[in-house]
Design a protein around this nucleic acid. Structure first.
Length: 433
RNA sequence: GCGAGUGUAGCCAAGAGGUCAAGGCAGUGGAUUGUGGUUCCACCAUGCGUGGGUUCGAAUCCCAUCACUCGCCCCA
């Protein structure tokens, strides 16, 4: 009652879930590093104008999904709804885009969009992404896509689908858009309400409508792929050829369009059937115009962003949470013994062992119960008797055997300790399968 | 932003206007003040998302509000 709650569309990531995040982040990091992508960290909020100009005023993201506010200095600011624009801004501002040079970058961090929350969709969510700036080669598109599929595969995800398309260049889209409007206008009355609305705002989207009647009308509508310039078509063909060389399965989806204005040529999406309505895990493409739009030198670029929450949902369906059991559980009783036990605990931790120290102050019986639940391989036991003699008892939980060592021996034989732990862990694993 | 559904403990839940709200899992303490996993016992919601209203009486009916879920829109 009266307790303050996390605000709508935000959530806490609790310890039992964090292990998935760490696993995903670590995997991403090694894959990016192997391909010589460097991490970049940019601010969580930026000038509103950056997104308005970069993403496009007419897009849904800018039009109705931004967390915008003015600060005490009357600056118009926005919590970033995606990271690409900020990364591009940082590259321009810091002179990272020298003519003829390449920047390979990756990033991760929180992202904000004011939308109705659903499964796999929140107002604060997290993205991981990469950007390859400075190359117009179709091979850059494919390198970037391959890193996405590598990452997902390394995480053990199956049954994902890669859709690709080419949205051409601005001129190609203009011509196609005109043709599309010309084709659809006579049918306007038969379109669903949403699509009628989109006829003037964003006719491309009509192709994607889920309305059956609209779909039958749209079947014979002009396809964007037929309006591509020869250059754009060649680019798209090379992307496909190179994907084939790498054995990456894909589907050409002529209806795939991206929600942000800055995309050119290649657009792609990776979807999962296990995510419900929010099926896209990873989306990206080429954005040759963005850097120039933001005031930088003309710089071709490709990249993608991946939704961490959606990725974690898939990982959780796949495997149980990785456990983090300690090597030793430290059982002690009596003020002097406890104080000594803590000293030994710290020294063993400094040698690289994992130890959980019992702080409950309850009887040995209860401490052993907790030791068992902790999943530890052994108990270190220090009571009045051991403390008085400078000794310590070690109970090996899987074998129910117990040794008494001098405390000195405990601290000076890390190798044999490690060996015993490894052996017991093995037999434990064997007995469980 | 629109449409629909659901809120009872950390989790899964029964309850359907009338004994100070079943049960299970988890947790804590004890049987066992120096030895675990099994077992047994005890404890664990002055309150049913929140705020109003109807009623002699509300977890149960009504209204509002908040949150979540599903669909639309859109995206990661």
């Amino acid at each position: 009652m009266g307790a303050i709650q996390a605000i709508r569309g935000t959530r806490d990531i609790l310890p039992n879930e964090v292990s998935y995040w760490q696993h995903a982040e670590a995997t991403a990091r090694t894959i990016f590093q192997r391909a010589q992508y460097q991490e970049i960290r940019t601010p969580i909020f930026e000038a509103t104008e950056l997104f308005a100009r970069g993403i496009g005023e007419a897009t849904d993201v800018v039009g109705k999904e931004m967390y915008s506010f003015t600060d005490r200095g009357d600056r118009a600011l926005t919590l970033r709804p995606e990271l690409t624009a900020g990364v591009a801004r940082a590259c321009i501002q810091n002179g990272l885009l020298k003519p003829g040079s390449l920047q390979r970058l990756w990033y991760t961090g929180p992202t904000f969009r004011y939308e109705r929350p659903q499964a796999g969709r929140q107002r604060q969510f997290h993205q991981v992404g990469i950007e390859c700036l400075g190359s117009d080669s179709p091979l850059a598109d494919v390198e970037v896509i391959a890193l996405a599929t590598d990452l997902l595969q390394a995480l053990g995800l199956r049954s994902l689908q890669l859709d690709i398309n080419s949205v051409g260049r601005g001129e190609d889209r203009q011509r196609h858009r005109q043709a599309l409007v010309d084709y659809l206008t006579p049918h306007k009355a038969d379109l669903d309400a949403d699509s009628q609305d989109r006829l003037t705002r964003n006719p491309l989207r009509i192709l994607d409508s889920k309305n059956e009647r609209t779909q039958t009308i749209v079947q014979d509508a002009p396809q964007l792929l037929d309006y591509l310039s020869p250059e754009s078509r060649r680019h798209f063909e090379q992307v496909q050829a190179s994907l084939n060389d790498l054995g990456i399965a894909y589907q050409i989806n002529p209806r795939l369009v991206r929600g942000l204005d800055y995309y050119t040529h290649t657009a792609f999406e990776i979807q999962s059937a296990d995510l419900g309505a929010q099926a896209t895990v990873c989306g990206g493409g080429r954005y040759d115009g963005l850097v120039a739009t933001l005031g930088g030198a003309d710089t071709p670029a490709v990249g993608w962003a991946l939704g961490m929450e959606r990725l974690i949902l898939l990982l959780q369906e796949l495997q149980a949470s990785p456990t983090t059991a300690p090597d030793f559980y430290v059982v002690s009783r009596g003020a002097i013994a406890q104080a000594r036990a803590l000293v030994l605990t710290q020294k063993l931790r400094q040698q690289g062992f994992g130890l959980e120290f019992d702080l409950s102050g309850s009887g040995f019986g209860n401490q052993f119960k907790r030791a068992d639940r902790s999943g530890a391989i052994a108990c270190l036991i220090l009571g009045d008797e051991e403390a008085a003699q400078g000794k310590i008892s070690i109970k090996w939980l899987p074998t129910q055997t117990q040794d008494t060592w001098t405390q000195d021996r405990l601290l000076t034989s890390p190798d044999s300790l490690r060996q015993t732990l490894a052996q017991l862990r093995e037999t434990l694993a064997a007995s469980q399968t």
